[in-house]
Design a protein around this nucleic acid. Structure first.
Lengths: 219, 219
DNA sequence: ATGTAAGCTTATCTACGTTAGCTTACATAC
DNA sequence: GTATGTAAGCTAACGTAGATAAGCTTACAT
């Protein structure tokens, strides 16, 4: 007879009460979430590592998810939903501190960048196509698009100096995303470059693209 | 008895002549190069796939490379060296067409971006940390830094309008890299966004960061 | 004819996704 | 209070793929 929870040293996880089996579903998603956050830049995402974190046997994942890809899709949804919340919270905070559209946009930008630097594993999954579910679920391609929408609205409200490279808020928002994403991605992937302070970096990128009338910043 | 070149359908590769065994080394690197270029965003880079492309048996790789990581390092070196050449060629072309520093910088930017869009597999290896050799070779961290140096020099020579977000050419070059890298990376990873023409994208990003006196562009 | 360079086969150990079917313990019925 | 159905999660096993070690085969230069 082999020890339970094959391959583990730790304690067996207490079984959920009868009728509460669905709890495990959430615990598995949480475990997958944690696995993704600690994944090296080139490590595979395995179901078995998820099971280990969740302290369950690998096949128990199949009780709640048809296969690895379905689990992955669920985690991706959670990750993107979290992004929406994080940025909205940052914007709300800036607004309640009296910030106008420029300050709010900056707050959103900074929140996104800070998240990426603090959670490179998740950032890579979200925006670098790291760990893709091999499903042709149409949702996958459009995850993340909502993040752009709010940015367009804010840009529309920001009074600008002359010298913007485009008059189209949608274009500006795309350019801004390019700059910010590039900053996070490069900083993660080329950490030995001569990186300035994050706030300064975000402000310079956002200012270069948006060219707001406002002069300096706090946040 | 099993067929030679285990697992292959194709013909056996002609053996190198005596004394020319080193040729295989180059062929293996080339094969690895090709494997990387066709790798999906989340596929593992395997020695066996390299061997298959090189039409040799997997263990034959060990004749020339101590292990998978050493091979990877060799391919990375080749990839980065190629980048230097590609950009230098673009700059030279712009220069011989009478371009000044602004046109040369744009040419370099465009060459880098176009490369990324045409070779996303390689781009991800170069700049997104996709497939990392698990070696603490100090060279790995600093691969790519030389690409920045030339950009700094050019920026120093470009007359600018007022309104730059920084006076420091080194900083500007970093910001520019962020913008361009972000554009390539996002375009690869979020292809369903509303992407403009590549030249326009590159020009807008470069112009926003550098704020050159020059008005419009051709290339 | 033979030594040796060039590349091959075989084999081992590890890890993965996934299937099949088993164990355990609680809630209810008697 | 004992039996039992079933929910919850487990073990065992299969087939695939990977990195790598050990040693074998083949054909050319001498």
């Amino acid at each position: 007879m082999v020890a339970p929870n094959s391959g583990q040293i730790g304690a067996r996880r207490p079984r959920n009460a009868r009728g509460e089996g669905e709890k495990l579903r959430g615990e598995i998603i949480d475990a997958a979430f944690r696995v993704l956050s600690t994944l090296g830049p080139d490590d595979p995402f395995s179901l078995r590592s998820v099971a280990k974190i969740a302290k369950i046997a690998a096949p128990s994942v199949y009780i709640h998810f048809a296969n690895r890809n379905v689990l992955l899709l669920a985690v991706l949804e959670k990750l993107f939903a979290e992004q929406v919340v994080i940025r909205a919270a940052a914007e709300t905070e800036a607004a309640s501190a009296g910030g106008g559209p420029w300050e709010r946009l900056l707050a959103r930008s900074f929140a996104g960048v800070r998240f990426g630097l603090e959670h490179p594993g998740h950032y890579k999954v979200l925006f670098e196509g790291r760990v893709v579910p091999r499903l042709d679920d149409p949702r996958v391609a459009d995850f993340g698009r909502p993040l752009l929408v709010r940015s367009i609205e804010l840009i529309r409200e920001i009074p600008s100096r002359p010298g913007r490279v485009s008059d189209d808020p949608e274009r500006l928002s795309l350019l801004l995303w390019c700059g910010l994403h590039g900053a996070v991605s490069l900083r993660i992937n080329k950490p030995t470059l001569n990186w300035p302070d994050t706030i300064e970096l975000v402000e310079q990128i956002t200012r270069a693209i948006i060219q707001p009338k406002q002069p300096k910043i706090r946040i």
